[in-house]
Amino acid sequence: NEDGEVQEVDMQAQAEGIRTVFNDPTNFNVKHPLYSSWTLWFDSPATKGRNLPQTPISAFPQTPLPQTPGPAAAHGWMEDIKRVISFDSVEEFWGLYNNIVPPSQLPPKANYYLFKEGIIPAWEDDANKNGGKWSIQLPKDKNRGNVDNFWLYTMLAAIGETFDPELTTADPAGPPPESLITGVIVSTRPQFYRISIWTRLSPASGAEDDPLRQRIERIGRHFKTGVLGYQENQKLNAPLATEVEFLSHKDSEKKGKGAKKIVV
């Protein structure tokens, strides 16, 4: 009977040492903290109307601005979006990744939303309302074999905090700089996939020398080349496919009228 078997580990000899999961996969004593805590959300037609693990919007630390209609307006939107789990270490991320459904196996019309803790995946959240998103649309038939890695690499750039290069150059005496990234989304539709990177801010002007625009464009270029592996000047536009393009949430609401897209 092996059930009662006690693992004999030389605890004392190792007690003083730092053991990562690579040194000892079952008995590690340190974990790698992420720059931010993250929450994974999910919705699909199958989640609608389910009142099982309902996600009360009040459970989230909204920036208290009760006079604005934002969080209330997001309430209907959030009703069918299920909170899956929160995590704040590299090790926890992989435990989740290895036990959840990859995008290629999701039904059509499903979405994963991976957002920083405390930010709900809605335009109305204070962290998102002045922002926008980089996104790419990929035809499903040509990308079934790519989408899982694209989404994994997008998540890794998000939790590793490598989308926004400004963070390295900040003044070490100041507070830790705030990243422009609020979350990332993968969406499955009957004929295409879409992956999006949401940012806290979006450039107000179209001026090419606007520092914010340059910072946003660096995020888009990193997404296209570093994360997705396309060439810098590669044209991606095709039936059911888009370039890697940025649109502010305010312009998205206008449904195309006067929308100023940035393309990398």
Partner: peptide, 17 residues
């Protein structure tokens, strides 16, 4: 290396996943 299912992960079918 990190394959253990998180304790906090809800049953996926319960959230339609």
């Amino acid at each position: 290396v990190c394959k253990e299912k998180p304790d906090m992960l809800p049953p996926l079918d319960a959230i339609g996943l």
